Computed example of a mutant assay.
Amino acid sequence: MTVVSVDKDVEALSFSIVAEFDADVKRVWAIWEDPRQLERWWGPPTWPATFETHEFTVGGKAAYYMTGPDGTKARGWWQFTTIEAPDHLEFDDGFADEHGAPVDELGVTHATVKLEPLENRTRMTIISTFESEEQMQKMAEMGMEEGMREAIEQIDAVLSEPANA
């Protein structure tokens, strides 16, 4: 099993998920850096992602949509705030309308991704922080934990292939 722990801290307004992979840090970094690899795991299997833009630089933006089983498209955006290859990434994350413009109703979350070497393995920690307890609760009701678990469980298949596959 890839996911080793999940923690919700209402006081800190954070949700963290820790996973371990049979790959080195540089290989795991590539699944964030390369949008074609990111598409293969970002979003649960029933809601696969398509990245329309992925400007992987500090201040750069990513725009994507996830397509549901009935063809519904849920759009999102990221703005990269920290990129320290190959082990630290941070970005703001939000929902978007059908034109890709940010939607304010659900607010913005901030994601911090840390990769740590464990001999020939890598531990990935993703921490999402929220603007309010209400936002955190709403995201939980939307299935954030289950969706993240299902998404992360797809990473092993991506890592089993060469980084440029």
Score class of each variant (00 low, 15 high):
Val3Lys: 06
Asp9Cys: 13
Val10Ala: 13
Glu11Ile: 15
Ile17Tyr: 00
Ile17Val: 15
Ala19His: 01
Glu20Lys: 10
Glu20Ile: 01
Asp24Lys: 07
Asp24Leu: 10
Lys26Thr: 11
Trp29Cys: 05
Ala30Arg: 09
Glu33Val: 14
Asp34Ser: 07
Pro35Lys: 02
Pro35Ala: 05
Glu39Asp: 06
Arg40Asp: 04
Arg40Cys: 01
Trp41Pro: 00
Trp42His: 05
Pro48Ala: 06
Ala49Asp: 03
Thr50Ile: 07
Thr53Ala: 03
Thr53His: 04
Thr72Lys: 12
Arg75Cys: 04
Thr82Glu: 03
Glu84Cys: 07
Asp87Thr: 11
Asp87Asn: 07
Asp87Met: 06
Leu89Met: 02
Leu89Ala: 04
Phe91Met: 04
Ala96Arg: 02
Val103Met: 14
Asp104Ala: 15
Glu105His: 11
Thr109Ala: 11
Thr109Pro: 13
Thr112Gln: 02
Val113Tyr: 08
Val113Ala: 04
Glu116Phe: 14
Arg121Met: 13
Arg121Asp: 03
Thr122Ser: 08
Arg123Phe: 10
Phe130Ser: 05
Met136Thr: 07
Met139Ser: 13
Glu150Arg: 13
Glu150Asp: 12
Ile155Asn: 06
Val158Trp: 01
Leu159Asp: 06
Ser160Lys: 09
Ser160Met: 09
Glu161Arg: 12
Glu161Gln: 11
Glu161Lys: 14
